[in-house]
């Protein structure tokens, strides 16, 4: 899809959202909503009966809409900048720099690379981010001729991961190396999956383990099993409660936003880099807003902070 079409689509997205906000008080007559029904006393006086009407826009979410519009606009602006050839800097992420080293280690040792895409389905954005990294890892294993295994908990992730790995092997010019069995299904149960992975790490001793995606109670069990097996481990998650476990048990950890920046960092695509810069701009704006909110609230002006904290 060309960049111009993409910008138009982005514009449509912003305009649609803005249109929704601007017609926030539209009240179609005669429609009774299950959710919110408002009755205006004026209509009661005029007709003698209650005139039900629906609220179209969730007014309590206007703060989210303002931030979303600013966010989308800044991302689109930076994407346009990137298209014009601007140099965009992205800081070093040790965990992502280690991907090549980790795959190289497995190649030298003649052992396999194990990639765990988390335990959630493809509707979880962390799993989607994990698929981007899997594509890169699979391209590397295809190039070096290293064995790769991707055991899955969710059948939808299985289908997606298989497609991603297949595409990566094609891109690397090694479609003959791809085997469907590389990406296999284990079970839908969390701890049965954990037991299977732990057993696999202990028996087959993969040289490299990637634990990237959404993890819960199984995170430490898997990471410790990999550590005990002597594997180099790269983990990544945005689950706050699991981060300390990964930091302790793995060699490299992608913390929160680093997981989502991985595709930009690894591919160095100017368009994706542009979106990361747009995200940074919003982060700066949020810091300013937080400081302003604290200062104004301390000065007794609570409306500013209230606007951004109402749900």
């Amino acid at each position: 899809m060309s960049g111009r079409i993409r910008l138009v689509l982005g514009g449509i997205l912003c305009v649609t959202a803005w249109g929704v906000m601007s017609q926030g008080r539209a009240e179609p007559r005669g429609i009774v909503s299950d959710s919110v029904v408002t009755a205006r006393s004026a209509s009661v006086e005029r007709s003698g009966y209650v005139q039900p009407s629906t609220r179209c826009f969730r007014a309590e979410r206007k703060n989210a809409l303002v931030l979303f519009l600013f966010f989308a606009a800044s991302i689109l602006a930076y994407i346009a900048l990137a298209k014009r050839g601007a140099t965009l800097y992205i800081r070093k992420i040790a965990g992502l720099d280690a991907v090549d080293e980790a795959v190289g280690r497995a190649t030298e040792m003649g052992r396999k690379v194990l990639y765990i895409p988390g335990i959630m389905s493809v509707d979880n954005i962390q799993t989607v981010a994990s698929m981007s990294i899997l594509g890169y890892v699979a391209e590397r294993t295809a190039t070096y001729g290293t064995q790769l295994e991707v055991p899955n908990k969710d059948p939808l992730v299985l289908a997606t991961a298989r497609e991603v790995v297949k595409e990566a092997y094609l891109k690397a010019g090694r479609p003959d190396y791809f085997q469907e069995d590389m990406v296999n299904y284990v079970t839908y149960d969390q701890f049965a999956y954990t037991a299977a992975i732990q057993g696999l790490m202990t028996r087959e001793r993969p040289a490299t383990n990637f634990l990237i995606g959404s993890f819960y109670a199984e995170s430490l069990i898997m990471a410790e099993a990999g550590n005990a097996a002597g594997a180099i481990q790269v983990a990544g998650t945005a689950e706050l409660a699991q981060l300390p476990f990964f930091v302790v048990a793995c060699d490299y950890t992608l913390i929160g936003e680093e997981l989502y920046a991985a595709s930009a960092y690894l591919s160095r695509e100017p368009l994706i880099l542009g979106s990361i810069k747009g995200q940074d701009l919003v982060k700066v704006a949020l810091i300013v807003l937080i400081i302003a909110g604290v200062a104004l609230s301390s000065a007794g002006i609570g409306e500013f902070a209230e606007f951004f904290t109402q749900r």
């Binding site: 594509g135 997606t160 595409e167 695509e269």
Partner: peptide, 10 residues
Amino acid sequence: GIERPYMGGA
């Protein structure tokens, strides 16, 4: 459509 992980990449 800038990133398409569901189709195997960017």
